[in-house]
Design a protein around this nucleic acid. Structure first.
Lengths: 357, 357
DNA sequence: TTGTACGCGTTATCAC
DNA sequence: GTGATAACGCGTACAA
């Protein structure tokens, strides 16, 4: 029996990895009741006598007590969790917005459960179910597919919901995103001012993302008033195809105008800008001589050639606004009609839109 | 009284936003017991009669029942949540690793609670507490500061723990990250092969991040064997200061050698590469003539000048390995001694390390 | 194979 | 002010 202690720790001290202390143990340690301890940690300290407060404080500190959020969420549904669905976590724009969301949540004492769908509608459904199973109090959604039915079901159940960047046709929910019309207007104005007369608008397929549709539509609408000629090309990430399209656009002889008019590329988002830059590089085009303007500011845009002109999205603000919307809906989800929040982009002029070099 | 129904929905149908169905309601609907339903959703369907299974399935489907993870986590601690602490969510490297972690978790039926500390040790502590309060089953940590004490306390309580990229001195935990020595060796070999003889190693301050220390140390160790001359410069994000350092390095006359030897910059990570590229651009240096090699592959590296040579980290694999480690520790956290997993980088040679242009 | 009873840690309700 | 007690939704011995 004693031998067990020779050079060895008794088994009983090995196995029982200590549980976290519970509210009951704190209550006992403080000589108080569960209720009082609960009140103490629920921000109702004013309703407790200073002396009791102090006893609880020291007891909790000594035991290193931390309220169990799981148990909290069980009773009143106050999980203090907010869910965020991101279509592509590797997209810097998404990350920047998420950063804003996260900061805003933190300031509100909310935790953020982030799910990345990798643009897979199937995964999106799965993750939606996952997050609700964790009793999230609200959902911020950058949709990958069209989970309209699922989302509608959620709002019907009283789940506050905010759409991010991408709008969905049938879902009644707030939307926070860029003012896409304004963005295209800014872009066209700038390109026209800089002397570019013929434009090629490049975008990814527009079916899945409302901003792409809005931008494309505005592009077509906005040409005439500025005496611009333009065409659009939507394609997915095929570099080869993109390069051919750009080459055709650049080498084609212009029979609609007299002189030779500078031509420019307008890219619908950061991914397209990257692909287009790659293509232009392969084609040996000189930035500026061939104009290039992209929506989404990326940290490398100032480094390529003479710098790439961009329209910066207010990513942080978009994220914060999303949380603000959510918070406004928390008390009574179906209260007000859905609102659309459209934030302003900012032009970052650089060398890629200076035709004179 | 009737008037209330004219063009209006009776109040009672507005307020009571339907709760999610519970296991009891499913049991009632299926004419079964809680237990059976619980078993059904806990993957013990083999132990149920096919007919019961079917009844439960339809009942659950009709009610759109979803087990409440909060309640699940309460009992045995099976929250199915994994926590991940990220020092800088806007760092593409971190995001890439996180992507790997997330995929691996998903395959294991685990949800991921991500917290970003923005490199703030204070916030790190807060978030650590937050995640444990949600009863995460394990923690993957890309440390911002030195939360050694907190982490040690957690492991003592049986919390499985994996360190990501950055090691911590006193914490007994698995580590997954780049093979930093190998990375520097590869870099030095490549630079030497390409004919660069004088190197400037650029890094951010090494206090907070062990990889920075390891890389810097290896740099100094590895010079002699390759007949290279080199010096190192660690500084934080001050562009001005960086530019001066680089300028001094490039313009200084070399009195240790006879001829003029090509000089190159070796950047400790992606952020430094970005800053150095900016500085070189401002200085009007030609990439290649002035060598440039950076650790961390970024999507714009092939676009700048002749392309920037990089050492790509196996980010996805690092993320997956972290989850693997965690899983291995779940059954018995303190089982084996901590292991260090060091993954291999891959050289992406480009024009920035071709001195001949 | 199926059902019963209890416990998980917390909050809400209602007495004192 | 403070405390006892009943939920909350689920897992799990244990009994049937």
């Amino acid at each position: 029996m004693f031998a067990a202690y020779h050079g060895n720790v008794p088994i009983t001290t090995v196995k029982p990895m200590p549980r976290r202390p519970t509210i009951i143990e704190v209550a006992r340690e403080a000589g108080a009741s569960k209720t009082s301890v609960s009140r103490y940690f629920s921000g109702e300290r004013e309703k407790l006598s200073p002396t009791l407060c102090a006893r609880i404080a020291t007891a909790a500190l000594r035991l290193d007590y931390r309220p169990n959020q799981m148990a909290r969420g069980l009773k009143g549904g106050r999980s203090r969790l907010v869910g965020m669905l991101v279509a592509d976590i590797r997209n810097p724009f998404s990350v920047a917005v998420m950063h804003g969301v996260e900061r805003a949540c933190r300031e509100q004492g909310l935790a953020l459960l982030v799910c990345n769908t990798d643009n897979d509608p199937e995964l999106e459904r799965t993750h939606l179910a996952l997050m609700t199973s964790y009793q999230v109090e609200g959902l911020i959604i950058n949709a990958a597919g069209s989970p309209d039915a699922e989302l509608q079901a959620l709002t019907d159940h009283g789940m506050p919901l905010v759409l991010l960047d991408r709008d969905l046709g049938t879902v009644q929910a707030d939307l926070v995103g860029l003012d896409n019309a304004r963005a295209i207007d800014l872009a066209l104005d700038h390109l026209a001012e800089q002397g570019y007369g013929e434009l090629l608008y490049l975008s990814e397929p527009t079916e899945l993302a409302s901003p792409r549709r809005e931008r494309l539509a505005r592009f077509h609408e906005g040409l005439a008033a500025r005496r611009l000629t333009g065409e659009a090309n939507t394609m997915d990430g095929n570099d080869q195809e993109l390069q051919h399209a750009i080459e055709a656009f650049l080498t084609r002889s212009d029979n609609r105008r007299s002189g030779d008019v500078p031509r420019a590329l307008l890219c619908a988002n950061g991914a397209v800008t990257l692909a287009a830059t790659r293509a232009l590089r392969t084609l040996g085009a000189r930035l500026g001589e061939t104009g290039l303007l992209g929506i989404d500011e990326l940290d490398w845009c100032k480094l390529v050639g003479p710098g790439i002109t961009t329209l910066a999205q207010p990513t942080e603000a978009i994220g914060r606004q999303a949380v603000t919307c959510l918070l406004a809906r928390l008390p009574n989800p179906a209260e007000a009609r859905p609102r659309k929040h459209r934030l302003e982009p900012r032009l970052m002029p650089r060398g890629s839109t200076r035709p004179t070099g």
